[in-house]
Simulated scan of single mutants.
Amino acid sequence: MSQETTNYDAASEFQDRATFSQKMQAVLHKYPWLSSTMVLVVASITFSFFNENFLTPSNFSLILQQVAIVGAVATGQTLIILTAGIDLSCGAIAIFSSMAMAKLAQGTPAVEGDGLSIWIAFPAGLLVGMLAGAINGALVTKVKLPPFIVTLGTFNIFLALTLTFTKGTVPANEMPPFLLTLGHYVNLGPFRVTTGVLFMIAMYIVLAFALRYTAWGRHVYAVGDDIDAARLAGISVNRVLMSVYVVAGLTFALAAWIVIGRVTVASPNTGGDLNLDAITAVVIGGTSLFGGRGTIFGSLIGAVIVGVFRNGLTLAGVDLYFQLMAIGILIIFAVSVDQWIRKARK
């Protein structure tokens, strides 16, 4: 028997001796969205026993509408966490962008068309989000500050700018109908959802394609997995990081459009917990806080899991404080699973 055959047989025998735990680690390492999917299925089945209305199409439609905003913000948060960063300012950027586009387009009920054209106001709001993301990216790549510290600081800055320069709210009757488009309802068989839900799903599809089938997407994963190895491989690390923060800023601004359609008002006091909710969705969805591992659709599953837990616990009559405790436990569980999965053999 040749040496090559002997080595092959030894390797095969070693693989066969892997424990169930090791095999499970390897599977979850390869498919990070699998653990969150299992949690979603188990939670849905469990909550159905507490309330017969939980598994109805109308209730699931409500859950999707409730998670549309968080799910949209989670798309950009996923990109940043994939690079081993984090963005605590995502909610502030979204609200800043929503107020920018609403205030620029604001008119008065008595005078039609006295605000800026929506074709100027809307792109301006998107540009605000991208510029905010660029500021974060520049501080991370040029000044070499940790993303946590950078975005903690810019969270307060963007929030202060919103409160300072966009005083008051903008009601629906003072906004162009275009800004309220994503609040319209559509029927999909037994489900009735807003166009904001469909727009959010479209965002996931576009980013999933970019991450999987473009060189940019492969570079994002490479930078998050090992930044030094990515640099040695010829990847322009700073350029990749900068692009990620700019694209994330754009997604936060698009989420702002969903916010306006959902609440039918532009208010600087909306979405105070968006940053924490988005990070929660990404972590529960299987994206590693250490970067380089995760999928964009995992974050969508994570957002739905949070929505399912809150909805299910509410229908079961559980107090709000215990709902918050359950979400906290879920986060700790998700991070613990991530740590365990990272020990898997590659």
Rank of each mutant, 00 (worst) to 15 (best):
V246L: 13
A202Q: 00
T78N: 14
L241Y: 03
S117Q: 13
Q339F: 09
I332S: 05
H29A: 11
K144T: 14
T195S: 06
A74R: 12
T46M: 00
G294C: 08
F322K: 07
T194I: 01
P109F: 14
S299C: 04
G217S: 00
I305S: 01
L276V: 06
F252G: 07
S61K: 15
A68V: 03
V73A: 02
T181H: 13
R262K: 06
L320C: 03
M101Q: 02
G285E: 08
I284G: 05
A100I: 14
A26Y: 04
A208H: 00
F47E: 09
T264Q: 11
G217Q: 13
P146T: 12
A10C: 00
Y245S: 08
F54P: 07
A202V: 04
A10Y: 00
V170K: 07
L127N: 08
A230L: 00
T287R: 03
G107K: 15
T195I: 13
L62C: 01
L159I: 08
A105V: 09
G271P: 01
L182R: 07
N238V: 10
V223I: 15
G113V: 10
I80H: 05
G113F: 15
L82M: 13
A74Y: 14
L315D: 06
D87W: 03
Y213M: 03
A68S: 06
A105D: 06
G291L: 04
F252L: 12
P57G: 03
D228G: 04
G234I: 01
S61L: 12
A210G: 13
G168L: 11
F333H: 07
G302K: 10
T46P: 00
A278I: 02
F50H: 10
S117D: 15
P32I: 00
A11K: 05
P146V: 11
S288C: 00
M24E: 07
Y204C: 08
G168F: 10
D114V: 15
V111M: 15
G249L: 02
Q22P: 03
N53L: 10
W257V: 12
V306C: 06
L152Y: 12
L276W: 03
V27T: 11
T5F: 01
L180C: 08
Q77L: 14
H219C: 14
H184M: 09
K167L: 08
C90W: 01
A256Q: 04
T270F: 07
V143C: 07
A92I: 11
V193E: 09
E4K: 01
M1C: 02
Y185N: 09
F60I: 05
I258T: 07
W340F: 14
K144G: 02
D277R: 05
T56W: 07
T154F: 04
L28M: 13
F49D: 07
G294I: 12
I260V: 15
R212F: 06
I329P: 05
F14Y: 03
L88R: 07
T162L: 06
I95V: 05
L116Y: 15
Q106E: 15
Y8A: 05
T5Q: 04
L62A: 13
N173Q: 14
Y321W: 11
V42E: 02
Y213F: 15
S288N: 05
Y31P: 00
G196D: 11
M130T: 15
S48A: 01
N311H: 00
G76I: 03
V265W: 02
F199Q: 08
T264P: 02
